[in-house]
Design a protein around this nucleic acid. Sequence first.
RNA 1: GCCCCUAUCGUCUAGCGGCUAGGACAGGAGAUUCUCAUUCUUCAAACCGGGGUUCGAUUCCCCGUGGGGGCACCA
Length: 464
Amino acid sequence: MSNVRVRFAPSPTGFFHIGSARTALFNWLYARHTGGTFILRVEDTDQARNSEQFLKLIYDSLTWLGMDWDEGPSPDGSGERGAYGPYRQSQRGAVYEKYKQQLLAGGRAYEKDGAVWFKLLGDRYTVFDDHRKKEVEKVKTAPVVIEDLIRGRVARQEDEDFVIFRSDGNPVFHFVNVVDDIEMKISHVIRGEDHLSNTSKHVRLYEGFGVPAPLFAHIPLILKSPEMGQGKMSKRDKGALIEEYQQRHFLPEALVNYLSLLGWNPGDDREKMLIADIIKLFDLPAVNQSNAKFDGKKLANMNMTYLLEQPADRFVGLARNYFKAQPNGAAVLADEAWFREVMLLAQPKIKSVDELGAYTVYFFTEDFPIDAKVKDKVMAKGDPKSRLAELIAAVPGMDFSSDAAIEAAIKTLAEGRGLGFGDYQAVARLAITGTNAGPSITAIFRVLGRERILARLQRFLGAA
RNA sequence: GCCCCUAUCGUCUAGCGGCUAGGACAGGAGAUUCUCAUUCUUCAAACCGGGGUUCGAUUCCCCGUGGGGGCACCA
């Protein structure tokens, strides 16, 4: 067990964002890499915007992604574990009060306009701030120098007193963040670069409390992809919410793998990696300094490569979860053995689990759609109606015992007329599945069975 | 406006003074396959600009420019 203690400190004020997930991930990876402690702390001081629903979403998303926390609220929200609680800021009022009194008593804070302000040390002067369009009091101070683990030395001037308790009596972010990091003995603050400018405030606060500051590591931000526009990813952007991937039944390890590569790399060409290897290889100095744009296509590709190699049981389980949430789910799942067979036929073909519904409809209903474009194309080539009639004649006597037997039968039929397998395949597929994409036609014959194949062929020919 | 961070193919990135600037996703072409997809081969694609430092800069420094973030009694 190392002395590394890191925390992920989200606010339950909105959906769980991909940027938050990445920050959580880097903290978690660092804790696991170093054998340290990963803490979840809920920053719910903004009573107006907090909600229990969003809090639950944080627990669920972290759990889904496989980021377990050593201290913090329990995943079901019922209690908590760890020696430095409570882990919800809304329950830490007494702690903040104590630290406020300490500053007040030491002359490092004062009241003004009903709020409590942190007092900087140095000579004071007044200037007109043309950004805020008002007179402000400034303080001459030495620059705050931060030795950031990712950015190197960063110097920034902090030259204005700032509010630490609002006039409504509630403490502000900068204050509670620092107090809790002290109380929870946080060793490394790993957070988004958007906090880099805040860090000078935080360092002054640590000084005010007479406590050494933790080490800082400011990670790059995730930006919109070029199609989405400019700026950092916001909750409005497509693909920005973890919930979305969960609903689409992405593999969490694929998402984690992709996220780990946004701003970090193992130092060689490896991209697809086991979580265990990512943990082993991850380190703070290897994190990039520049922001990364989100690429949904690369994520989708990562998800597909994971999907292709899933063991049958896991894939079928994933498929089952997906269909449970579909309107026709109960019917699809009715016959377990058959469901499994169909899903395993689809596994090597699909790119994501949420394609499964459309990809396998015709296995579960006679009322499947016919793709008009595919129909036009297939029916325009050769003499498909004759091929269909020939198949209808042959199917009753065909050996359906294996894919190989079916393939042999169709080939024999084709050769007898100087044709190829393909001349039957396309039109049979169209008649039986309504599309041109799918598993091998022989497997479809075998799984659907003689009666249904024959019925579909006849029905299609009759309508054509 | 002020402050901070940052800059290699469209995108994620490797490179840590001397390389035909490498890989991956996306895109193009081809091969394999009963379709589709996978897979394989292959093509196209980048060092933001200007000054330095150096025998030599993608690499180090400075200045621009571009991108990002921050400047609240939000977090």
